[in-house]
Amino acid sequence: MYKKYVSSILLMMMVSGCSSSLASGNQNEEKLTVKDMATHASQLVEKAAVKRSVELIHPTSKEIIYTFKSTLSQKSKEYDNEIKMLAEDLAEQLDQPMVPKKLSNGQLTEGSNRVLLDEKKLVETLKNIRALDKKIELPLQVNAPNVSQETIKGIDEVVLGSYRTTYNASVTGRSNNIALSANAIDQIVLGPGDRFYYNLIVGERTVARGYQKAKEIVNGEFVDGIGGGICQTSSTLYNAVANAGLEILEVHSHSKAVGYVPVGKDATVSWGGPDFKFMNNKDYPVMIKTIVNNGALEVQVLAAKQAASKI
């Protein structure tokens, strides 16, 4: 009778939801709620974020370019902004335009590679860093000048396009600057896909480099400046390149009409400012040739006869 009574009491306690120290084994034990568990998981994620560190290395030299460390959540907008800014900073540091080769005494001089960081690809890579990723190769596109001694045979046989302008040869400063800039671009060779940046090829116009004072256009006014006249060279080149059918990448007009080319046919340039850029879109090499003679400047775009006959 006593046993039945005790069993009935225990059964009632279980049905009513009462806890028993006999059932739990520990009266002081506390269980984590769903909220507590979520907070604990978040803390683990944040700890993992603090430890995120990866070395960004050059794909060729294997040099460590930058050690990326972040304490931000990988899924946050702040993290997206951080890696986008990093990609922009690295691009500014690593990107460099191609310096094309030049023909000198029948031999090609060394140019330099075009280097371009794929910012979008880098951002996507950093968005998906895994815990075991300790080193990542930077997505750099490297293009060398696409010409060789073999491919330039007969490159001066055919004129694809040309243009001629005139100037007052008695104005010594201007004449000097035109001659210097024309010589800088003379016999530049561009292989298929190679690019030409006028400011890069001609370089900074300084007294130390032989440039003199001459009239130039600044904000719609004629003023004296070192290197005045080089825009006649860039404008003559622009028209020759356009006549040859090469691809224009960047061109700007002066703020005031010039007398040596028709309106809208000029290409103003300045160091650290507007530039004139084009690309050889042919499937064969071309060469720039300049002729300066007694107040006249002619620019020609040349190619080998056999290559040009395939057009």
Rank of each mutant, 00 (worst) to 15 (best):
E82I: 01
M37E: 09
G25C: 04
V45R: 15
K84Y: 03
M85E: 14
K75E: 12
S19T: 02
L56M: 06
L11E: 12
S73A: 13
N81T: 10
T71V: 09
L44M: 08
I57S: 09
D36Y: 08
T71Y: 06
Y79E: 01
K69L: 00
D89V: 08
K62C: 15
F68Q: 03
F68E: 00
V54I: 09
T67V: 11
F68V: 01
S61I: 07
D80Q: 15
D89A: 15
L32M: 14
K51T: 08
V54N: 08
N81Y: 02
I65Y: 00
I83F: 04
D89E: 13
H40K: 14
K75Y: 12
M37G: 06
L90N: 09
Q27K: 08
N28I: 14
I65G: 05
K51I: 04
G25A: 07
K69N: 05
S70A: 11
K51E: 07
H58A: 03
M13D: 09
R52E: 01
F68P: 04
Y79T: 02
T60S: 10
E63Q: 10
L32G: 06
S73Y: 00
M14Y: 07
E88L: 09
I65D: 00
L32S: 14
K62M: 15
K51Q: 08
Y66M: 06
N26E: 05
V34N: 04
K51L: 12
T39Q: 12
A49R: 06
K84Q: 06
L56T: 01
I64K: 11
E82H: 13
K35Y: 03
S70N: 14
K75L: 10
K51N: 12
E55V: 02
N28M: 14
S21R: 06
N26D: 15
Y79F: 01
V54P: 07
K47R: 13
D80T: 10
M12L: 13
K84V: 05
K77H: 09
K84E: 01
L72W: 02
S53Y: 01
K62W: 07
N28Q: 13
D36E: 15
V15L: 11
K69T: 00
V15T: 11
Q74D: 12
H40L: 14
A41P: 04
D36G: 12
S42E: 12
L11K: 14
L44W: 05
L32P: 12
A48T: 07
E29R: 11
K77T: 12
E63L: 06
S24N: 08
L44K: 07
L72T: 01
N81A: 12
L10M: 07
A49D: 15
E46P: 04
H58Q: 02
I64N: 07
V34F: 05
Q43P: 01
F68T: 01
L22G: 07
E55Q: 14
T33N: 06
K62A: 14
M37R: 10
T67Q: 13
T67C: 04
A87Q: 04
S61P: 05
M14L: 09
L90D: 02
